[in-house]
């Protein structure tokens, strides 16, 4: 289970990494609609940062039981 979750989360980070560059970014690269007053392209980059934070936080809190203290 631990191994499976770790692989899944690493895969998700590879996807997030690729999402920050060509050819994925161009899909979301538009000025409108504005979200919270900022252009959509800017909002997309910010969302990726939020997603990375939430992904690792969730993994850390719920699935990562590998090593809580030094052996």
């Amino acid at each position: 289970m631990q191994r499976y979750a770790t692989r899944l989360v690493i895969l998700s980070f590879v996807v997030q990494f690729l999402a920050a560059m060509w050819p994925v970014y161009p899909v979301f690269n538009r000025i409108r609609p504005f979200v919270f007053g900022i252009p959509f392209s800017f909002f997309y980059a910010t969302s990726l940062m939020a997603l990375s934070f939430v992904t690792l936080l969730a993994f850390h809190l719920w699935w990562d039981r590998s090593d809580d203290e030094p052996r």
Partner: peptide, 10 residues
Amino acid sequence: AFYLLGFLSI
């Protein structure tokens, strides 16, 4: 400048 967000997030 958004490239800063791109690499800092991961």
